[in-house]
């Protein structure tokens, strides 16, 4: 599904990623853990195509295609989804219009028929209900005046509608109470299938109690320094990143 080889990237002339190697096979959920400043968010933005990151080396292949050569919207159409750490507020853009525009853009790019307002509303209501999110959320401006938890739920709702092949969750657990955390985890777990993969980026082990990963990787100073099973997350929680640093 996703194959990252020797990826190096700079932000404003400062090297952040120093040779990341990572492979996420189809159907698996991988977690990336690491201390602040290790390059976790940079990795997620580089993968989703945000401006301001200069890729200086390495490659990223997504289902056999060169991901780094694609525009952000092409990546989304190809099945990549980034759940933002800080979802952006869009005053004046209604959430329903936003969701329908995104869904139809992706459907069109995938050669599927676009949904009219009624068809969309029906689908959106189903997804909202499954995620225990109030319908009210459709009527508001995108993320405008949303609490931290509501913003993250809105990210999960987008993910549920767009049905990505690979979801990257960038510290989605930060600032969430336990109920919101469960909704986010349910949203990811509901998508679990042989053709769906996820990359869960987190600082803490807590989220991984609800989204149990197949593999856990530790990112430090711009490199994956250790990989293991779910037990690695528990070990980090107990012993901290210092132990890894010492081992690496």
């Amino acid at each position: 599904m996703l194959k990252i080889e020797g990826l190096t990237a700079e932000v404003e002339g400062k090297q952040i990623l120093k040779g990341v190697d990572l492979e996420v096979p189809a159907g698996e959920i991988h977690a990336i853990m690491g201390p602040n400043g290790s390059g976790k968010s940079t990795l997620s933005y580089v993968l989703s195509g945000r401006e301001g990151y200069e890729i200086t080396g390495g490659s990223v292949s997504f289902n056999g295609v060169d991901l780094l050569a694609m525009e952000p919207e092409e990546r989304a159409a190809a099945g990549l989804f980034l759940a933002f750490q800080y979802p952006v507020e869009l005053p004046g853009v209604g959430n329903a219009l936003f969701l329908r525009t995104a869904l139809n853009a992706v459907r069109k790019a995938r050669g599927e028929s676009e949904l009219d307002a009624m068809q969309f509303l029906k689908l959106a209501r189903e997804r909202l209900k499954a995620l225990h999110i109030s319908e009210d959320m459709l009527k508001r401006g995108v993320n405008v005046g949303f609490s931290g938890g509501e913003k993250k739920r809105n990210e999960v709702l987008q993910m549920a509608l767009l049905q990505p092949k690979l979801a990257i969750l960038d510290e989605t657990d930060s600032g969430l109470d336990i109920d919101a955390l469960k909704i986010v985890a349910d949203g990811v777990n509901a998508l679990r299938a042989p053709g769906f993969s996820a990359l869960v980026i987190t600082h803490y082990q807590r989220l991984l109690d609800y989204i149990v990963p197949d593999r856990v990787h530790v990112l430090m100073q711009g490199r994956i320094v250790q990989s293991g099973g779910p037990e690695l997350a528990k070990q980090l929680e107990a012993e901290g990143y210092a132990s890894v640093q010492a081992a690496a």
């Binding site: 195509g49 525009e71 919207e73 989304a76 980034l82 936003f98 525009t101 853009a105 992706v106």
Partner: peptide, 13 residues
């Protein structure tokens, strides 16, 4: 930021 957010959801520029 707003533009990137929309594009990351598949909406052409």
């Amino acid at each position: 930021e707003q533009l990137f957010y929309l594009r990351s959801r598949g909406i052409p520029e």
